[in-house]
Nucleic acid binder design. Structure first.
Lengths: 187, 187
DNA sequence: ATTTCCCTACCTATCGTTAGGCAGGGTGAA
DNA sequence: TTCACCCTGCCTAACGATAGGTAGGGAAAT
């Protein structure tokens, strides 16, 4: 655990934050999970704000890489759009967890600025990717693609939030299906 | 403040919870806002869980009354649907606050059961009303109206969450407009 | 006389954070 | 080769602040 302690902290903090938010992050619990003492975390992160920002940054970095990999693997943009909600679905399957960005959007008023910025960047990454893929799929003109991408991102976030409050992944699936029926997402 | 202390606590707690969540509710802060001492709150609410549940219950009761009043006043169901997002918009205008139910959905894992139930009921009230109005507007068959209502509720919640993370009500307006363009909401 | 409403004073638990130290490895000078 | 020095990574112990909650009493209203 020595050289990987920092990574272990980041991973544990991400999982906790997706279930209990930034406010739910506790140095003592986090340290216990990693196998060190609370004070030792300060060797890797200068403050809770720094830790939170690092977790959020890593979160959107990983998501950006995942989205790019998906587009590279599945060349068909329509199929990419079809698979997009799976990213949110996976969080629900993994212990009924929420998107970190959604949780931090709720906690927004109590977040240090550095954390706010990184959380916002997750949304920007998603919207930029969706906008690009929408144009590739011929489903939007370049001018209107970002607005449409934002709508999809917000709606999928809302679906995840609702499904979490029911502890029921099938509610998420049903909502995504409704989005397709109504025309927000490609059928 | 004597006879109205309970109501004053409920009102203050609601405002705080919409900005900082159930976890952000503090007996000391709440009492200071109302003009009494923290321990005195226990005369009105047996525990924080009880207070949270009472706040959430009052929240959906008020919303249910507001929705019914809207439908009674504006007989046209299509215009009702058009005005529905305004309820969420108003929270954002009032100090960038979130729907209590959305905040509690994020906090779901850390909520006492009584609070969970009341928070869920808010969604049920909204979905039932939307389903009814969708049928009245001829926009859905009775069988599929609830699924469509849920989709609208989740999407509008997501739009509010996104707009909050940007502290920008116009982002909410733009998202609602996108929902109309894409067909999720009536144009 | 009893209930209502609020008080002071205090409890225990947990929070992020700090001070200071200890063991081990790497490095440069003698 | 050996010794002094510093960095890394972690530790123990404690800090002040804040959390929800409790015990018991005072004063006013019924």
């Amino acid at each position: 655990m020595s050289t990987n302690a920092k990574e272990a902290i980041l991973a544990a903090a991400r999982k906790t934050a997706q279930a209990h938010g930034y406010g739910g992050l506790s140095y003592r619990d986090l340290a216990a999970e990693v196998g060190i003492k609370a004070a030792s975390i300060y060797h890797h992160f200068a403050s809770k704000a720094d830790l939170g920002a690092a977790v959020a940054r890593r979160y959107w970095e990983d998501t950006a890489a995942e989205l790019d990999a998906m587009l590279a693997e599945i060349s068909d943009p329509v199929r990419c759009l079809h698979r997009y909600p799976d990213i949110f679905r996976r969080s629900l399957e993994d212990g009924n967890r929420l998107c970190l960005c959604s949780f931090m959007s709720a906690e927004y008023a109590d977040l240090p600025e550095v954390v706010q910025r990184e959380a916002q960047h997750f949304a920007e990454v998603n919207i930029a990717w969706l906008g690009k893929v929408l144009v590739l799929a011929g489903m939007a003109e370049p001018e209107g693609s970002e607005a449409r991408a934002r709508a999809i991102f917000a709606a999928v976030s809302g679906a995840q939030l609702y499904a979490r409050s029911r502890s029921d992944v099938s509610q998420f699936d049903a909502l995504i299906e409704s989005y397709r029926t109504s025309g927000l997402l490609p059928a």
